[in-house]
């Protein structure tokens, strides 16, 4: 076992822990928008750590290329998916107002929905 294997194992374990915490957050957070944070975010970093861990272990260029493609697609698609779900949820009213300290979007949307003069 070389030091690279140790780093690889540490990355894999940390990535798994973050993904597990994301699952816990998914259950524990009260509403959809908070859950989107848990569902999309610690998991991005967790996945990147796991990919780095696998890459350090495999050390093969074609495999590393595949891992890079996975990381790239994750970074490109996760924000778009989160945005579309969050936007739809907000407009459908699937947001718990009692969890919001400040809400600057509702007045803007209401002003738009009102028929003009």
């Amino acid at each position: 076992m070389t030091w690279l294997d140790v780093v690889s194992a540490a990355c894999l374990l940390a990535g798994c822990a973050l993904s597990l915490i994301a699952a816990v957050g998914l259950i524990r957070f009260p509403d959809l928008l908070s859950r989107m944070h848990a569902g999309t975010k610690p998991q991005v970093f967790g996945l990147l750590l796991i990919l780095v861990g696998i890459g350090l272990r495999l050390r093969d260029w074609s495999d590393v290329g595949m891992l890079l493609a996975v990381a790239m697609f994750q970074l490109l698609t996760a924000p778009v998916a989160a945005h579309m779900v969050g936007r739809a949820a907000y407009r459908r009213g699937a947001v718990r107002r009692d969890t919001l300290l400040v809400d600057e979007l509702t007045p803007v949307l209401e002003a738009e929905d009102r028929p003009g003069p």
Partner: peptide, 26 residues
């Protein structure tokens, strides 16, 4: 920011007590 914020959100997910307050800002 990715590392720091991941740890912060993880801490919020594991925290005992009331769920965190949120905000929608412009």
């Amino acid at each position: 920011e990715l590392v720091v914020a991941s740890v912060q959100v993880a801490a919020l997910a594991l925290r005992i007590g009331r769920p965190p307050l949120n905000a929608v800002i412009e």
